Amino acid sequence: MEHLLQHLRNLGFTEMEGKVMVELAKQGSASGYEVAKRLGVSRSNVYGTLQRLAQQGYLQAGPGEPVRYSVLDTEELTKMISSHLQQSLEAVKAGMPKHQPERPLFFNVEGDKNVLESLARELSQAEHEIIVDIYREEAALLREELEEAEARGVRVLWSCDGADNTPARWMSPSVLGNAGRQGGRRFSFVIDRRRCMLGMRGEPGSAQAVVTEHPVMAELLLSHFAQELVLFELDQDMGAELEGRYGPLYQSIIRRYAGGPS
């Protein structure tokens, strides 16, 4: 019964209203005195509740003295509640002031489920372009959302560290490979060159992300993406020559700026 009463409270009925309606549904019909006696509460509270529910149309009051009340059958009752709720929702939609709430400049998302849901939500709102820098594990989890974006005309550009079995159109691995990678797999998205989401996934429950519309962050991520693809194309054209001069993955250059041994 408590479970049912909780749902009635969620629909806007008071504790007493819910108990009265459930009791009448059990008994078929009853007087105010009988309902009060069965619930073990004062008659004055029950009488006021019965009259209020009857005025709202949820109860029917029979003729005679004492008045006997009955609740609408379940299907009719739920239709009436649904209609009242829909009217309230429409009134809120029409009457709520249109001022847009201010978003914080940066906000954090934590936890694997929350991060993935936030990523999917951001991707679903893209209108023109999505820039993606991601590992193959996250690419697989978000592939459906990104393909849906492409299907509605959004331009999707990829940089994806993947395995040999990753589709070629998803591949544009960084020349720097996994250099500097610590604590998990990094990802970043730039939505419509404005909305950014970047973070890291790794151990279960350790996912974290930052969402922002700060123009400097968008500029940095877009610049990094462009530089990564330029390096990729250079590697495709001159990879053997560059590797011969600087070593595999050009480690002699990377160590110079990453603090490793020269």
Rank of each mutant, 00 (worst) to 15 (best):
H3A: 10
Q6I: 06
Q6T: 08
N10V: 01
L11E: 05
T14R: 00
E15A: 12
G18L: 03
V20W: 05
V20H: 01
M21Q: 09
M21C: 09
A25P: 00
G28R: 02
Y33C: 09
Y33K: 04
Y33V: 07
A36Y: 03
R38P: 03
R38W: 04
R43E: 11
S44R: 05
S44V: 15
Y47A: 13
Y47E: 15
L53Y: 11
A54M: 06
Q55D: 14
A61S: 13
A61G: 06
E65W: 10
S70A: 15
V71M: 12
L72Q: 09
L72E: 07
T74P: 07
E75Q: 10
K79C: 02
I81Q: 11
I81Y: 07
H84W: 08
H84N: 08
L85P: 01
L89F: 14
E90W: 06
V92A: 14
A94K: 04
G95N: 08
G95A: 04
M96F: 14
P97M: 02
P97D: 11
E102Y: 03
E102N: 03
L105R: 07
N108A: 10
G111W: 08
D112L: 01
D112R: 00
D112Y: 04
K113L: 13
N114Q: 15
V115N: 01
E117N: 09
S118T: 15
A120T: 13
Q125M: 10
E129G: 01
E129A: 03
D133T: 07
D133V: 15
R136C: 14
A140Y: 03
R143I: 00
E145S: 09
E145I: 00
E148R: 11
A151G: 07
A151P: 02
R152Q: 05
G153H: 02
L157S: 14
L157N: 14
W158M: 00
D161I: 07
D161G: 05
G162D: 13
A163N: 14
A163D: 14
A168D: 04
A168F: 07
M171K: 12
P173W: 01
S174K: 06
L176N: 05
A179Q: 06
A179P: 03
G180S: 02
G180I: 08
Q182K: 14
Q182V: 15
F189T: 11
V190C: 01
V190L: 02
I191W: 03
D192T: 02
R193F: 09
R193W: 13
C196A: 11
M197L: 13
L198K: 06
G199I: 04
G199L: 00
P204K: 06
G205W: 08
S206H: 05
S206Y: 11
A207W: 02
Q208S: 11
V210S: 05
V211S: 03
P215L: 04
V216A: 15
V216K: 12
A218Y: 10
A218E: 06
L220S: 04
A226E: 05
Q227L: 13
L229I: 10
L229G: 10
V230F: 13
L231N: 14
L234C: 14
M238W: 10
A240F: 15
E241Q: 13
E243N: 12
Y246W: 14
G247S: 02
G247K: 05
G247P: 09
L249A: 14
Y250D: 09
Q251V: 07
R256E: 14
Y257M: 01
G259C: 06
G260Y: 11
G260N: 06
P261W: 04
S262A: 10
S262H: 13
